[in-house]
Design a protein around this nucleic acid. Structure first.
Length: 425
RNA sequence: GCGGUUGUGGUGAAGUUGGUCAACACUCUGGAUUGUGGCUCCAGCAUUCGCGAGUUCGAGUCUCGUCAAUCGCCCCA
């Protein structure tokens, strides 16, 4: 028969892992809360046009999407990233009319990309991200980097660094595009196949090619900086100044241009330098977008945001031995000796109602086996229901740590637990 | 989309030039000890080696296909 298993590039998150997920998610939500970002939940799929924008040349948009159409309706696509859906929602609900700009949103959830899976790269993956829309300020660019940075640091990750660059405003950017094309025009034959393709669709990406890295024409390529207008330079200076003031270490990486071509001004990427992260080193990355809101039909309004891959965060947390939560110890385990009917379940229910984590023995088992369960659950108190005591309305309560045992009437079980468990905290 | 490596029980894994019983360790289950465990001792736990074909008298071991994981390229969170 068929062997059922998770589809390629997807994974089951089992309880031992989901505890860690919950821990990370909780940390993220608390940081967002402090920074005044509120959660937005948009659909898992959108009209394909939301993700496939005109003039967008990235491969992600071109071929890595899960696109489908059912019952002859419009083409839909499983979201490959968070920003597009949020901007769509921002415009649809006219959030630009909000009295308090910027609008500060965060999202967390599954994203889908048809790619070849690798460590830290899956077809269904979880991403957390924020978008700050409506106010264009270098202070906000720095603020969101600080937010992301504090999550990474809050998790205890050490080996990360912030890479940052600026693409300048629309004008600077297109000026540079032409300057670059001009420069490489005579060197086209030397370039690799990918670069020839990039030359046409997105010359900016020529700069971070790994194959042609050492070519002479790469080294002599004009830098983006020369094409920046004064306004763009000043903007970037202020972003860096703010990062300095916040004592966030960064590295300016002139090659950093990022994949999505809606970015303007600041782009950044926080990468891990830990060997475990392999080639999938980016922990979070993003940048400012001046024209996206307008593209979706809103007013001319700038925004800035980033996306963070949670699987990677988890991999890094484990690689750096960050202590993640274990299953909490059990407060009480109700053991059954002989024929005691439903009494263990009754007691367990009562104990649970009192707010204690409690398990009970449901099938006839030897005392030894039951004590093994007690040990495995790291139980604090064993409640032992025996036939003899049951007839007298009594039950044994054993403090596992101190190895002391007393016999009390049913009515005093909770009081006794309160005393034992309350005393140790 | 391209190239490399790997795939044996719940877990970690041995498996020699293809030749009966698929080692060992941990976990788990039961017993010694039907009502008080964590030590010890004993016993049990893979009709089967990712899946499917093929070669062979015989395949975990060879071939092909397929699925998956992983590393690198591409791309990117």
């Amino acid at each position: 028969m068929a062997n059922y298993q998770t589809p390629r590039g997807t994974q089951d998150i089992l309880p031992s892992q989901s505890r860690k997920w919950l821990q990370i998610e909780t940390l993220i939500r608390s940081v967002c809360d402090v920074y005044g970002y509120e959660e937005i939940r948009t659909p898992m799929f959108e009209d394909t046009k939301v993700f496939k924008r005109e003039n967008d040349s990235s491969d992600m948009v071109n071929k890595e999407m899960y696109t489908f159409s059912v019952h002859g309706e419009d083409s839909m696509t499983l979201r490959p990233e968070g920003t597009a859906g949020i901007i769509r929602s921002f415009v649809q609900h006219k959030m630009y009319g909000n009295a308090d700009l910027p609008v500060k949103l965060y999202y967390m959830g599954e994203m889908f990309r048809y790619e070849r899976p690798q460590k830290g790269r899956y077809r269904q993956f979880n991403q957390f991200g924020i978008e700050n829309i409506g106010v264009k300020s270098p202070m906000i660019d720095a603020e969101i980097i600080a937010l992301g940075y504090s999550i990474v640091k809050g998790l205890g990750l050490q080996s990360v660094k912030v890479l940052i660059n600026t693409l300048g405003d629309e004008q600077s950017r297109s000026t540079y595009r032409e300057v670059l094309k001009d420069h490489f025009k005579d060197h086209l034959p030397e370039l690799c196949e990918d670069c020839k393709r990039r030359y046409e669709i997105n010359p900016l990406r020529l700069l971070d090619c790994k194959v042609d890295h050492d070519l002479e024409c790469m080294k002599t390529a004009p830098s983006l900086e020369q094409s920046l207008n004064e306004e763009s330079k000043e903007y970037f200076r202020q972003v860096l100044g703010a990062l300095d003031a916040l004592e966030i270490p960064y590295e300016i990486d002139a090659r950093l241009v990022r994949g999505l071509d809606y970015y303007t001004h600041t782009v950044f990427e926080v990468v891990s330098t830990h060997p475990e992260s392999g080639t999938q080193a980016t922990v979070f990355g993003g940048g400012r977008y001046d024209n996206l809101v307008e593209y979706f039909g809103g007013p001319q309004m700038s925004g800035v945001g980033f996306g963070m891959g949670l699987e990677r965060l988890l991999i890094l947390a484990e690689a750096e031995q960050v202590p993640l939560e274990e299953r909490p110890a059990l407060d009480a385990y109700v053991m059954a000796l002989g024929n005691v009917g439903s009494k263990p379940l009754e007691l367990a229910t009562e104990i649970r109602a009192a707010g204690y984590r409690c398990e009970f023995n449901a099938v006839p088992r030897s005392l030894k086996a039951q004590f093994k369960s007690v040990d495995r659950f790291r139980t604090k108190v064993a409640v032992i229901v025996g036939e003899t005591e049951l007839q007298q309305g009594m039950v044994n309560i054993k403090d596992i740590k101190n190895q002391t045992q007393i016999t009390v009437p049913f009515e005093q079980v909770i009081d006794t637990l309160d005393r034992i468990l309350g005393g140790e905290e």
